[in-house]
Nucleic acid binder design. Structure first.
Lengths: 228, 228
DNA sequence: ACCTGAACACCGTTCAAGT
DNA sequence: ACCTGAACACCGTTCAAGT
């Protein structure tokens, strides 16, 4: 009985196992996730898990589904006028990043496990809807949504991994950024002149503005396509 | 003596261990990489590895360095005229994708381990050089390079993982694509109307054209910024 | 300086056996 | 239908001991 999770319905269900896996991933990192611990988390022996799931691989798939649980697309909100499609896509992208960052500890392990659309349809469906409403054709819509999702996930991956690595190492984000800068600045200047020169710009902790930069470029690019 | 790798210099060096790890990763997948197997690969006992490296974590870091070994930036080639910076960036991005796909089996494990620039400076330095030569300022150059690298890696991650998963499962790319399409088309059409409608577009095996789409948008966006 | 053997605590997974 | 105990083959890592 001890260790049964408070949230969700009580039994040993696939959902509860996924939640427990996700929780362990975020609380203790990659090494914290083992069948035995997941089992303990739901108050059962490790061998019992195999009645509900095929293997650890499947458990990770379930966990990557569970990661999207709290993500709900924006309410339709104000009606879409011609000049707000850009803002809508921007908001959706920002919310996507925020949501992934919420689960930063799990992103590294689960990255690449959620193919856009197939595994957890929510975010992809939202992007597709916004793009179609903006007037993009079917093919462009699919490609654009894929580009957006793929970029956000790549961005967050590079954002979340050092974050959780630094905090695992017991360093503050500032310390981690300073350390990164020094590593860059310490490279051989003859082989990597630009890295050395731009060490400050590259290692700054301004992830928000970096995200906004990429987002603006992507949306500008879509605007160019749309106006063609 | 049996099992010593043919390539590279013979001793048990950190480089050789990294190469062996990378090789195992690509040949046998994530489960194929263990300290004991790496040790066997270089003809030594598992415990010996700890004389050369701190732990498995460090070995993976070394392997993610080794992944970039074969990657050399384009020779300066023709002198940069004002209208070729776009082509240069496009070529660099494509080469980056190709190189990562060459190590598709290792990408999943190593993803997020190579922060752009810090770990393996080659690709980042190349991007920075091209962007500066194109006339972008320091801040924009740093942000643009980060965006490009981050997107390529996100893209390849989503491209490589299903690839290696499908082949591990013994399915052809076409079969995998067909399976993905059916999963999308089988979603509840009331909740995911666009996913169902665009199932064909989303799951097509045309990864090359999808990549070109994203690349074109990104470069268009940079062009807008540059012309401002 | 570099390697080994043996050991420790821990894995994922299976399977007969229980209820 | 669901869970357990015990077992199997395998981990990462440490450490005294060898040369």
């Amino acid at each position: 009985m001890a260790g049964r999770k408070a949230t969700g319905s009580p039994g040993v269900t696939r959902e509860n196992l996924a939640d427990a896996a996700l929780l362990l991933l975020e609380r203790e990192g990659p090494k914290g996730l083992s069948m035995r611990k997941v089992a303990a988390e739901v108050g059962v022996q490790a061998a019992s898990l195999y009645w509900h799931i095929r293997n650890k691989e499947e458990l990770l798939d379930l966990a990557s589904d569970a990661l999207w649980e709290g993500y709900t697309p924006l309410p339709p909100g104000r009606t879409a006028t011609a000049d707000t499609w850009r803002d809508c896509l921007a908001t959706a992208s920002r919310r996507l990043r925020t949501h992934l960052l919420t689960h930063a500890g799990a992103v590294r392990v689960l990255a690449g496990r959620f193919a856009p659309g197939t595994r957890s349809p929510g975010p992809m469906e939202e992007m597709l809807a916004l793009l179609r409403r903006a007037g993009f054709g079917p093919a462009d819509t699919a490609d654009a949504a894929y580009t957006l999702l793929t970029w956000v996930q790549g961005f967050v991956l590079h954002e979340a991994v050092p974050m959780s690595a630094a905090e695992e190492h017991g360093a503050s984000p500032q310390e981690a950024a300073a350390e990164a800068r020094e590593r860059l600045a310490g490279l051989p200047a003859d082989r990597y002149p630009h890295l050395v020169e731009l060490a400050g710009e590259l290692s700054g902790p301004g992830m928000d503005s970096r995200f906004e930069f990429g987002l603006a470029r992507l949306l500008d690019g879509l605007e160019v396509l749309r106006g063609r």
